[in-house]
Amino acid sequence: MALYLIDLPFAQVGLDVAKKDSGAKVVLIQDGVYLDTTGIENVYAVKEDVERRGVAARLGNANIIDYDTLVDMIVENKVVNFA
């Protein structure tokens, strides 16, 4: 039931561990927005990181969130850092 902050370098372990947590929320941050998260539920991606990289159309099922929303999510959930 945690929020997993995931950047590209630590994604292999991070995404795999998040998959074992039934209530996981996965937040793709920085270069993490390049990740393929097909098959993972509750995926979010940081708007500014997505827009600068031009990857909005490649994100599949990820919800795009701004920093304000990410702050709310951080407050509401335990944070697991893979960033």
Binding site: L5, I74, V75, K78, V79, N81, A83
Partner: peptide, 8 residues
């Protein structure tokens, strides 16, 4: 003292 810890 923190409710949440974020590392970057």
């Amino acid at each position: 003292g923190a409710d949440r810890v974020v590392t970057l």
